[in-house]
Structure formats: C-alpha cells, structure tokens
C-alpha cells in the first residue's frame, strides 16, 4: 500500500459527530506510515476528554483491515501537537457551515452566520453539544449557530 493511498483511505473515515466530514478534513491526522503491509496512523484529539476517541480509532482500523493489501493497522493518539481550529481544511470548514451550521471564529473574534451570512452573531454558551463546540445565536435570522473551538 502506498502513502497516497493511505491518505485516500483515511479520507473515507468520518468523524462520528459529523457524518460526511472526514478525520483528515477535521485535522486529526498527524502522521501515517506503512511497513511490510502494516499501517501506522498517528492522530491527535480535539480535546483530551473527547469520548469519541476509541470509536475513531476503531473506525480507522476497520477501514484498513478490510483491505487485502494491508496486514494490520495500529492507531496511536499522539501527545502533540495541540489540535486547533486552524487544522481544519477549507473543505472541512465549508461542510461544517453548510451541513451542520457550525462556524469557526474569525481572527478578530467575530462570527459569521452560516445560514444568512450576517455578522450579528453573539455567543450564548461556552458549552455546546460536544466538547469541541460552543453555542451562539444569529440576531438577524434568529437561528442557533454552533462554533467549533
């Protein structure tokens, strides 16, 4: 198995919280390698306490072990680097906004509503439905907005 094809397989593994958004687009993949048909993948978590870590690791292992050109797969959660929203790909950002009404904070701290495009979005709660999301509100179209943090 070649390195580009490993990358392609990883791009088929979705984050359990965001079906349709791959762990590559989310910036969780830090490293991968193959030796004698055994694939090793180094991932970094969004937050230390994310309860989906085991699920993600299991999904990566099954994506590789179903292939005839792979003898095995090991997933390691790496201590560093630290995940941040800057690790999201452009495609990942676009999909979060269009499919999940989840946005990223701009450098100046402001938010753009993923529904109507307004800039009048205000923070509501630092704690959202998952560890990596907080809740905001669009004062223009009156939709709740989630913020990846």
């Amino acid at each position: 198995m070649t390195l580009p094809s490993i990358d392609a397989v990883l791009a088929t593994v979705d984050d359990p919280e965001y079906p349709g958004l791959s762990i590559v687009d989310l910036g969780l993949v830090e490293s991968f390698d193959v030796a004698d048909g055994h694939v090793t993948v180094g991932l970094i978590p969004t937050f230390s306490g994310c309860p989906a870590l085991q699920m993600i690791a299991d999904d990566v292992v099954s994506a590789f072990e179903s292939r005839s050109d792979v003898t095995g797969c090991t997933v390691e959660w790496l201590a560093g680097p630290v995940w941040g929203t800057d690790r999201l790909s452009g495609q990942g950002r676009a999909r979060l906004a269009s499919d999940y009404t989840v946005v990223l904070r701009r450098k100046d701290g402001t938010l753009r509503c993923p529904v109507c495009g307004s800039d009048t979005v205000t923070d509501q709660s630092m704690a959202g439905p998952t560890r990596c999301r907080s809740i905001a509100w669009c004062n223009e179209c009156r939709n709740p907005v989630e913020v990846m943090r």
Binding site: S48, G49, C50, S125, M126, A127, R131
Partner: peptide
C-alpha cells in the same frame, strides 16, 4: 441546561487529563 453541559464538558476534560 447550559450549566449541565458546561460542568460536564469540564468534567470530560479533567477525566481526559487524568487518563493521560
């Protein structure tokens, strides 16, 4: 509700730190 979530989010982090 938000406070339920906040305390539990914080709890998840602390448990994650404990594991590490």
């Amino acid at each position: 509700l938000e406070e339920d979530l906040a305390f539990c989010s914080i709890a998840q982090d602390e448990l994650g730190h404990a594991i590490r």
